[in-house]
């Protein structure tokens, strides 16, 4: 029986090790190695940190890197602010049927490809688009207005794309908050604001953290929305990775960029977990 269990264990462990080893661990080691070499001449490479030096000294690269980080944090914050009242409404104010229907409505955009969602915003915001026509029709504008290709349009798209990943964890945690706890807060003399600050937000913290982590990751790693909705100067870091790999075929620099993106996202996720004293298992699993 012991050896039986042992065989079962090995059989179950093998797929996991193959998957993680061959598709996650080894590729990332390869990526690190490639980013740490420099092309001397055809087929001759030397180990060096030249790529990282280039990435950290070239103003365009550095600027794009920080811009992507800051904009992603901003997108996460806006998503949280917009989503929280809605999630609270679904979890606490709406009852029965209405609650289920509203929750379902939040899920629908998730089942539609990101490409379709972005396409929808393009139809709405472009010069010949719906919003532009609406503004002319109401007399607020006297000529077509171009609303695409700027940071605001990109932000609208980013927030829209990741909204669901904020709403769902928030609704889940808020639903587990007992109504009587809120009532007790009021009975003890708390106002709406202090109940929100002392009771509701602390209780919703796990949902806030996991929502923020996922939304941040999705914004940081987004390629479609910045490319399609953003302007010429709202370059995103993922676009630079794509350009180095596919357009310029400079894999060494591209790999260095990839690693920088990975480090940035890990640091921020780790920081968020650290700040709130939670672990990755609790947040994701």
């Amino acid at each position: 029986m012991r050896s039986h269990a042992r065989i079962g264990f090995v059989l179950l462990l093998t797929p996991l090790v193959l998957w993680l080893g061959l598709l996650i661990v080894i590729p990332h080691i390869d990526m690190l190695l490639i980013s740490l070499r420099e092309r001397i001449s055809f087929g001759v490479y030397e180990t060096s940190t030249a790529q990282y030096q280039k990435a950290l000294t070239e103003p365009l690269y550095l600027r794009t890197f920080w811009r992507t980080a800051v904009m992603s944090v901003l997108a996460t914050g806006i998503t949280l602010l917009i989503a929280f009242p809605v999630a609270y409404y679904i979890a606490k104010m709406a009852k029965g049927r209405l609650q289920q229907v509203l929750f379902m409505f939040c899920l629908i955009p998730f089942y539609v490809s990101e490409l379709v969602r972005t396409f929808g915003w393009m139809i709405l915001l472009r010069e010949t688009g719906i919003v532009s026509n609406l503004l002319q029709w109401t007399g607020l504008a006297d000529q077509p207005v171009e609303m695409l290709y700027n940071d605001a349009a990109m932000m609208v798209g980013l927030v829209y794309t990741s909204m669901l990943f904020m709403v769902v964890p928030l609704v889940t945690t808020l639903e587990s908050l007992d109504d009587s706890v809120i009532e007790a807060g009021y009975d003890l003399g708390g106002g709406g604001f202090s109940v929100l600050r002392e009771i509701i937000i602390p209780h919703a913290m796990p949902g806030i953290v996991s929502g923020c982590i996922v939304v941040f990751m999705l914004s940081l790693g987004n390629y479609l929305t910045p490319t399609m909705l953003g302007g010429k100067d709202s370059l995103w870091f993922t676009e630079m990775i794509y350009n180095q790999f596919i357009v310029r075929s400079n894999w060494e620099l591209g790999a260095a960029f990839g690693f920088m993106l990975l480090v940035l996202s890990s640091v921020i996720v780790w920081g968020m977990l650290r700040l709130t004293g939670r672990t990755l298992q609790e947040t994701m699993g």
Binding site: M31, G254, G258, L262
Partner: peptide
């Protein structure tokens, strides 16, 4: 889940 999709792509 927390590795950006584009990084997964290039590493593979």
């Amino acid at each position: 889940l927390v590795i950006p999709g584009i990084v997964l792509g290039i590493s593979i």
